[in-house]
Amino acid sequence: MSRLVLWNVDLTLVDVSILTREAYADAFRQVTGRPLVKLTQHNGRPDSEIIFETLAINDIVAEDAHLPRFLDALAEAFAARRGRLAREGRMMRGAAETLRAVGGLGGTVQSVLTGTIRSNAVHKLKAFKLDRYVDFEVGGYGEEVYPKATLLQVAQGRARQKYGAAFDGTNTVLIGDSARDVQAAKIAGASMVAVATGRSLPAELREAGADVVLPDLSDPSAVVAAVESLTTPVHSA
Results as ranks from 00 to 15, higher is better:
Leu105Trp: 10
Val145Gln: 13
Val112Leu: 01
Leu130Val: 07
Ser119Lys: 14
Asp131Phe: 15
Phe128Met: 02
Arg100Ile: 01
Gln156Trp: 00
Thr114Lys: 10
Ala96Tyr: 01
Tyr146Asn: 05
Gln110Cys: 03
Leu152Arg: 11
Ala96Gly: 13
Thr116Gln: 15
Gln161Asn: 03
Thr98Val: 10
Gly142Tyr: 00
Val109Phe: 01
Lys129Leu: 12
Val134Arg: 10
Gly103Cys: 08
Val109Glu: 04
Pro147His: 03
Gln156His: 02
Ala121Gly: 15
Gly139Met: 06
Leu105Asp: 05
Ala159Cys: 05
His123Thr: 09
Gln153Cys: 13
Val112Ala: 05
Ala95Trp: 11
Ala155Pro: 06
Gly142Glu: 05
Leu152Gly: 15
Arg100Pro: 03
Gln161Arg: 12
Leu105Asn: 05
Gly103Met: 06
Ala86Tyr: 08
Lys126Ile: 00
Gly103Ile: 09
Gly94Ala: 08
Tyr141Ile: 09
Arg90Pro: 04
Ala96Thr: 07
Thr108Val: 13
Leu152Pro: 14
Ser119Cys: 04
Thr116Val: 15
Gly139Val: 04
Lys129Asn: 14
Phe136Trp: 07
Gly164Lys: 03
Gln156Arg: 12
Asp131Pro: 14
Leu152Thr: 14
Arg132Ile: 09
Gly106Ala: 11
Leu152Ala: 15
Val138Arg: 01
Ser111Tyr: 05
Lys162Pro: 03
Ala95Ile: 13
Phe136Glu: 06
Pro147Val: 08
Glu143Arg: 02
Gly115Met: 02
Tyr133Gly: 01
Arg93Leu: 07
Gly140Lys: 02
Thr116Asn: 15
Arg100Phe: 02
Val112Thr: 11
Leu99Gly: 05
Ile117Thr: 14
Thr114Tyr: 08
Val154Leu: 12
Gly89Pro: 08
Phe128Val: 06
Val134Cys: 10
Leu125Phe: 05
Arg132Tyr: 02
Gly106Glu: 13
Glu88Asn: 10
Ala121Leu: 07
Ile117Gly: 11
Ala121Asp: 08
Glu88Leu: 13
Val154Tyr: 03
Val102Asp: 05
Thr98Ser: 15
Thr150Ile: 14
Val112Ser: 01
Asn120Asp: 12
Leu113Glu: 07
Val134Met: 11
Ala121Gln: 11
Glu143Asp: 07
Leu152His: 10
Tyr163Phe: 14
Leu105His: 06
